[in-house]
């Protein structure tokens, strides 16, 4: 019962946040955004035609009516048509989201797992040579620009200057072998880029747990180092770690990976969004930005409620 109440209040708290993100998106992209009248209209329009399109777009309506129209678009998942292809935006999203998911997921999972393993090793050898080595590697990894990693990995694995093992770009997937063929290099890039940040974060969390009293007690009772790390510390460190993981999921899935998808020419949300940004295709950008933000807020509420169910000590005001 109390959990239910907690869930209800969390959902209530999310409403102003949802209002805020939709308002920001609306203000930036619709209210102060570009005037779409002339993108929708043919050549040499008459004054009546212009007025008609403007009415259709709602430009003659007051602020709150327009914001209401924007909200209605978001709720009904009806974002209008793409300006460049005329395809419905919702069907474009349905087509591209699975591709982005397939590209990003292996790298995302591997990056988190590898970082967790490295962080555990580093924390276990705290202050020692291994720890320093891993942390130096993490700082170096953090300092290399995403773009540089993409370029270097493409040269190294996809070009005649390197191993030339994988396709330079594209996404022609009909079976599992194809999938691994095309996803390999993007996965390596994602793992490399995320590894430094994640390792540092995870190590900090684990080291904080290591300093707690229960660890000293367990050690005094003669529990093995490995068991303390794997059974006790990992369990307690799981809350901050999984928060980070769940919260970054919407960004991975919907926002796709603009850089990777553009560089490897993979037809996911990222590439669609990139093209929409460069051609000024507002309906697509609007749909992607707002739906990602809404999903983020939902993920936030969801994690809070799940924690409460797992760990009843989680208070409402923390």
């Amino acid at each position: 019962m109390e959990t239910l109440q907690f869930a209800f209040r969390k959902i209530l708290y999310a409403i102003p946040l949802l209002f805020g993100v939709t308002l920001i998106s609306f203000l930036l992209m619709v209210y102060f955004g570009p005037d779409l009248t002339y993108s929708l209209i043919g050549k040499n329009p008459t004054a009546e035609q212009i007025a008609e399109v403007r009415t259709q777009l709602g430009y003659d309506q007051p602020f709150f009516i327009r914001y209401g129209m924007f909200l209605k678009e978001m709720v009904t998942f009806d974002f209008g048509n793409s300006l460049s292809t005329g395809e419905r935006v919702s069907s474009i999203l349905l087509r591209t989201v699975p591709v982005s998911f397939a590209v990003a997921l292996p790298g995302f999972v591997l990056s988190e797992l590898l970082a967790l393993a490295l962080a555990l090793i580093a924390a276990n050898h705290r202050g020692g040579f291994v720890d320093k080595g891993i942390m130096v590697f993490a700082v170096v990894g953090m300092s290399i620009s995403f773009l540089i990693v993409v370029i270097v990995f493409q040269i190294a694995f996809c070009s005649i200057y390197g191993l030339n093992l994988f396709p330079v770009q594209g996404w022609v997937v009909s079976n599992v072998a194809d999938y691994f063929h095309y996803v390999a290099v993007p996965t390596m890039v994602i793992v490399f880029v995320g590894l430094g940040y994640n390792t540092r974060f995870f190590r900090a969390v684990i080291v904080e747990e290591l300093n707690r009293d229960y660890v000293r007690t367990a050690r005094a009772y003669g529990v093995s180092r490995f068991r303390i790390l794997s059974a006790h510390i990992l369990k307690n460190a799981m809350i901050p770690i999984s928060t980070r993981v769940i919260i970054s999921l919407p960004f991975v899935v919907i926002a796709g990976n603009l850089v990777i998808e553009r560089y490897f020419n993979i037809p996911g949300v990222g590439l669609i969004t990139y093209n929409a940004i460069t051609t000024g295709d507002l309906p697509i950008v609007k749909a992607v930005v707002t739906s990602t933000a809404i999903l983020y807020v939902i993920a936030l509420v969801f994690t809070d409620i799940v924690y409460r169910m797992i760990d009843p000590r989680v208070a409402l005001n923390s």
């Binding site: 805020g20 920001i24 960004f251 926002a255 930005v289 983020y296 807020v297």
Partner: peptide, 8 residues
């Protein structure tokens, strides 16, 4: 502001 992905 945190809810909206940075590049977008």
């Amino acid at each position: 502001l945190d809810a909206i992905p940075f590049y977008l």
